[in-house]
Design a protein around this nucleic acid. Structure first.
Lengths: 132, 132
DNA sequence: GGTTGACCTGGAGTGCACTCCAGCTCCTAC
DNA sequence: GTAGGAGCTGGAGTGCACTCCAGGTCAACC
């Protein structure tokens, strides 16, 4: 099963331009071409694209994804390196979730106490209180 | 109690340049100045800065923070509008956390099954499996 | 009174991740 | 056989959020 660039875009959630951009910067291997020179994405290509979108969604910078892609390209010898990268990334995602959660808590508090807080914002809550 | 720009930067976690930038774009009111023309931040200024960093950390774009700042500037009449903005922002933060969590789950799965997945990436997990 | 260091201003530069464009080719349908 | 639409390339442009810079002021200390 192969997919046109439009289909690959739809299935990966990336735009057509982004697919070509990712290829240009070496994040994805150039896909096969049909007789007319058009890109044809395989299921494997799609799988990789979907995985990349996960990494991107979780905030991995493109240069790191590229590093991962390059390691992947070098095959099994780099498995542990890649695993290590995923470990580290997992940690940072967890930290990011915790950070968001903590800000969310402040937000909840602020919403709940909105009227009071508005007038006594600094003393009561933001500086001495929850913020700490 | 007042603070120099360097102290305000340290306490808010923003850089000195960012403090001046925020002022320039109308995100914070111009603070008082001392006799030498230097900015002196009050506790209230600090409280606002800290709150802004929360919004920023949770991904609120600057133009929205500015909108909020403008409403705040117009006083009590805009309380419900601002509350509404916080409600909506809360929703988007919750969604973001859920999105991160779901990607994290995939990542965990990938890490746990790393060796197997490497060879059967597409069929087993990414396209038909968890991804869905 | 000279040097140092923090701060000032307006404006230019940066890094990231796309996104858009002109001008072209190729296939399909009428 | 031509009109339309999808796709192609190289390169330029965009939006965001800072970040840096040159050239200056000001207060304090030696």
């Amino acid at each position: 099963m192969t997919y046109s660039i439009a289909q690959a875009a739809e299935r990966s959630g990336l735009s057509i331009d982004t697919l070509r951009y990712y290829e240009r910067i070496g994040l994805v291997d150039p896909p096969a071409r049909d007789s007319g020179g058009r890109r044809t994405y395989s299921d494997e290509d799609l799988g990789w694209l979907v995985f990349l979108t996960r990494l991107r969604t979780t905030g991995m910078p493109i240069r790191m994804m590229r590093e991962y892609a390059q390691l992947r390209h070098r095959g099994d010898a780099t498995t542990s390196r890649r695993k290590q990268m995923l470990y580290e990334h997992r940690t940072s995602v967890r930290e990011r979730i915790a950070e968001l959660q903590s800000c969310l808590d402040v937000l909840e508090y602020k919403i709940t106490h909105y009227e009071q807080i508005e007038s006594t914002f600094v003393e009561g809550i933001t500086v001495e209180g929850i913020t700490a």
